[in-house]
Design a protein around this nucleic acid. Structure first.
Lengths: 187, 187
DNA sequence: GTCTATATTAAGATAGAC
DNA sequence: GTCTATCTTAATATAGAC
């Protein structure tokens, strides 16, 4: 072969960071080509469905990554819920590189191509909120309060990401995570 | 003249709703043309700088609108800070149509064309956070706590908007505004 | 001030050589 | 599997008539 083939993982990394940083519309094939080091035609070899297929696959991968890094901890029912929530927060923070990166799902929903990914993101978000709610419920909180706390935590994280980008300052996200962590301690 | 000329205000309304709904990249000239009822060439008559100029002018207009509808209330120093914050919350909610619409600045920052508007949005956001912080300070809170409360309120609003879009459900925003309103009462 | 028609550029996508 | 070259479409922008 002419060049040492990049692994699918390496290609995906380039695609991932591009979609994350500039959104779906902003990720042109030229940009994706440069980020991966592959020519446009080679990208189509790996993803016959083109840009749409790349975005769909990367969205799936990013959901899996966020699950693995953060939400997975919520299901460890042998550990106390406070510890699960702390690990969740820490994992979420790692997922967005302490506020320097953004959540791909948020980029896609708030970017232009909303309708394409809306259904998948809605379903995944609902599932994640259920997991958060159940974790709060296992501290002894009522269903209603658990529901409210889960939504409050989730919106705070995404709000912090959004404002961190508006201020171009990741510290906003880090401060918010610290605040949320303290609130978890006193549950 | 051939047709009754649309007022600049009417044209701006069409541009505004388009940019708000689909972001900068998603707002093609065809879409902007349809939304305003003006041909593409006519749009260039009103905005010689093209799409960029339209977006810049509409961003300025949206900032002015949000000021008028929400942040303006924070400066009414004759009223108690709790009431100022309530009016702010109510105005912000109106600005985004109770969670059905989004904030244009957030769309632009999270969409593709981040760099273009980043500076203006960063400056405006900092100014708004100062106004919120000063309002909290006038309830007797320390500088540090005022700073934290202001950031907490602001991130909660934008997080609620973001999650409302992820869930495609404006109720998430409305619930959050209700929750924030109750927190203001007990200041 | 608005239109139709057209120019120009860039984006997404494909063919075929290697 | 990757490349160069090309195609097709769509987007931004302009010219000139009315």
């Amino acid at each position: 072969m002419a060049k040492p083939n990049l692994t699918k993982l390496a290609v995906s990394k380039g695609l991932y960071s591009t979609f994350r940083n500039v959104g779906y519309d902003g990720a042109t094939l030229v940009a994706l080509s440069q980020a991966t080091g592959l020519g446009k035609a080679s990208l189509y070899y790996h993803f016959p469905g083109g840009k749409r297929e790349m975005a769909e696959e990367l969205l799936r991968a990013s959901v899996a990554e966020l699950n693995q890094m953060a939400f997975r901890h919520l299901a460890k029912k042998k550990k106390p819920p406070q510890e699960r929530l702390q690990r969740f927060l820490s994992g979420f923070s790692d997922y967005v590189s302490q506020g320097q990166e953004n959540c791909l799902a948020a980029m896609f929903v708030l970017g232009g191509e909303r309708s394409t990914f809306q259904d998948a993101i809605k379903q995944q978000t609902e599932s994640w909120l259920v997991q958060l709610r159940e974790t709060y419920a296992s501290t002894g909180l009522s269903d209603k309060k658990s529901h409210r706390k889960a939504l409050e935590l989730y919106t705070s994280l995404y709000g912090a990401l959004c404002v961190a980008r508006m201020l171009d300052d990741a510290k906003v996200f880090q401060q918010t995570v610290n605040r949320l962590g303290k609130a978890v301690v006193s549950l």
